[in-house]
Amino acid sequence: MQQWRLTPWATFSTARMLALTFGAMMYVTLMNLVFLSFIGLPLLLAALLIPTYRRQMRRQPLRFGALGVACAVIVVCVLWKIHRDNQLNKAHHPQLEQDVQLDGLPLPAGAKLNLRTLEPLDAQGRPQPHGLRSLYYAKFASPHTINGVEVTELQMYGSGPFSKMLLSRDQVVAGWPCAGGTWVTLDIADEDRLQPSRWRFSACTLVTGADVAGVKWPDSSEVRQYDGRFSIDTIGLASPAVVIQGIALSDLSLDLDEQRQPGRWRGQLAQDLTLGDWHYPRGMRVRQDTPGTLMFSPSKSDCAQNLRTGETLDAGRSIQQRRESGAVLWIKPNAGLGVADW
C-alpha cells in the first residue's frame, strides 16, 4: 500500500491554517462577548426598574450578579481602551499652539503634525527620535516657507531616503520651474531630516508649458535627478505632442548632464515621418544617442518601409540614420542595442 507523507512545507501550511482558524474563532468570540456586554448591561439595569423582573433577579442573586459584574468589567475595559487610544492618537497628532524650531526646521503655530512615536527607546532598547523629532507629516494652516520654498504640506518618511513637499504655487525649486499644487521629492539622509539646507532635490512636476532644454513641456511632465544627472519625461501616450529638433513626439524622455545640457532622448513619433528613403508611421519608436543621428525601432504593430526599394523593416531590428541627410549608418538586430522587442 502506498503511503502518503506530508512535506515540511505542507505541515507548516496546515499548522498555519489551524492557527489562523483558531485566531479567527477567538476574535469572533471576543467580539460577541463585547457586543453582548454592551447590550446586556443596560438590559440588566433596566430590569431592576421593573418589579416583575426585579423579583425574579432577587431569587437568583448570584447568577444575575455575576452576569452584571462580567458585563460591567468588559464594558469598562473597552471604554478605557477607547479613551486610551483616543488620548494616544491626540498625542501622535498634535496641533502646534506656537512656533517651534526643530534644529534647522521651523514649524509654525497652527501646523497639524503626525508623529511616528513618543517612546525614547525602540523595541531593541536603543535610543530613537521621538516626540516632535519623529515627525513624518505636517500640514500647515497657511503657506509656510522651508528653505526658500513655499509649501502647504511636508511628508517625511523616516527610515526612507525620500520626502516630499507640496508646493503652494508655481515656483523655482533647485533651478527647476515646478508646478504649484504638486509634490517636490527630496533626497534626505537620516541625519539631515531636520536640516532643510542639506535636503537634495530629487524630482518635481514642471509648470505646464515650461521651456526647458529648448522644449516646451506639456502638463504633468516630470524632472528627476539621479547621480547628479537629470531626466525629463512626459507622462503617458495621451500627453500632448512635444516637438524636439523639429520632430513631434509622444512619451518623450530627455536626459540632461550635470550642467543640465540636453543629451540622449527617446520617444514615439506623434505623426508620420519620412527621413531619406525611409518612411516611419506614427507610433514608431525613435531615439537619439549621439547628436546628428536618429535610431528607429519598429514594433510588432508597425514597420518602416523604404519608399525607393519597397523593403520593410519589421520588429527585431533597428535602423540608424543621419539627422540631416537621412543617410543610413546601419541596420542591426535589437540585441545589444538596449531595445525591447514588442
Rank of each mutant, 00 (worst) to 15 (best):
M165V: 11
S221P: 02
L33V: 07
P42W: 14
T21H: 01
N89I: 05
L275D: 05
V34S: 00
G263Y: 04
A340P: 00
P129R: 13
P177W: 11
W4T: 12
A189P: 05
T208I: 02
L41H: 00
V328W: 03
L249A: 09
L49P: 00
S318A: 14
E324N: 06
D85Q: 05
V184F: 07
T274S: 10
P196L: 06
P161A: 14
T117W: 07
R16D: 06
G326C: 07
D233L: 10
D122Y: 09
V69I: 12
L186Q: 01
P240A: 02
L252M: 06
G175A: 15
P143W: 08
I188Y: 07
G326P: 13
D255F: 14
V149G: 01
V207H: 02
L41A: 02
Y226K: 14
I82S: 00
S325H: 14
V242I: 03
L88V: 07
A10Y: 02
A213L: 02
A238S: 08
L43E: 04
E191N: 08
A47F: 14
T185A: 06
G267S: 10
K81I: 10
Q87M: 09
N114M: 09
M26K: 02
A189I: 05
Y280M: 15
C178S: 11
A327Q: 14
T21M: 03
A340G: 01
Q320H: 03
L167R: 05
W342V: 08
